[in-house]
């Protein structure tokens, strides 16, 4: 447990000290959200209708951008090989890194949400729903992204392969994340939120094993 917490606090400290990355990520999320209205046109009713889709696409892209650094620096400077000598299994270690990564890349998106909600004209109910879906859904994005990152960690030019693998797999997250906003169906919101939370829990529980397996193979 101490090893687990040590990894967690180490990753958090590293992430917070390089505050620039965090800021860039939030900035990217907001910029994507602000750019899309320029493509759509300044039509407020249409934009508030599209707001959930815009927020989720921006979140998906921002998360995608952040995954590459999840294992790469540890893999390249040999820390990962060193960690494998630790008392903590690699699966547990990856789990700790995942939680730290979510705290550093998933949570800031929720914090930045009000800006987008304001610009896109989201209603108060819609705003809270968006906060809830992002909280429930981003862990799944982190989990899928971790698998993509672990699989391409040994590749020097793996930058483009990981998104191509991760994006189709993330489709359910996008569907349930935006499906919660559909006013046409009664109960769609709570159903989508529950499915989203289930997806996040299951993927967060299983992804460490898959990612650790890929890291082991890459490290050989």
């Amino acid at each position: 447990m101490t090893a687990f917490l040590a990894i967690l606090s180490r990753d958090l400290k590293l992430g917070l000290r390089q505050g620039g990355d965090l800021l860039t990520l939030v900035l990217f999320f907001v910029i994507v959200g602000v750019l899309l209205p320029f493509a759509v046109g300044p039509d407020r009713p249409l934009l508030s209708q599209l707001a959930p889709a815009i927020i989720w696409v921006a979140a998906l892209l921002a998360q995608l951008l952040s995954h590459d650094r999840l294992f790469r620096s540890d893999f390249e400077d040999g820390s990962l090989a060193l960690f494998r000598q630790a008392s903590l299994s690699l699966d547990g270690l990856v789990f700790a890194k995942l939680i730290a990564h979510w705290l550093l890349t998933g949570l800031p998106l929720v914090v930045a949400m009000p800006v987008l909600a304001l610009v896109l004209g989201l209603s108060a109910d819609g705003f809270w729903l968006a906060v809830m879906t992002l909280l429930a859904g981003t862990p799944a994005l982190t989990a899928f992204g971790a698998i993509g990152a672990a699989v391409t960690v040994g590749l020097k030019r793996g930058g483009l392969v990981a998104p191509v693998i991760v994006l189709p797999m993330s489709l359910p997250v996008l569907i349930f994340g935006t499906g919660a906003f559909d006013p046409a169906r009664v109960g769609a919101a709570s159903q989508a939120l529950l499915l989203l939370a289930a997806l996040s829990l299951v993927s967060m529980a299983l992804a460490p094993f898959a990612a650790a397996l890929a890291l082991r193979i890459s490290g050989e």
Binding site: P168, L171, P172, G179, A188
Partner: peptide
């Protein structure tokens, strides 16, 4: 899971 989510999405829309 993808199959299920797509079916769910389709009945929604």
């Amino acid at each position: 899971i993808i199959k299920f989510s797509v079916d769910w999405w389709q009945t929604l829309h």
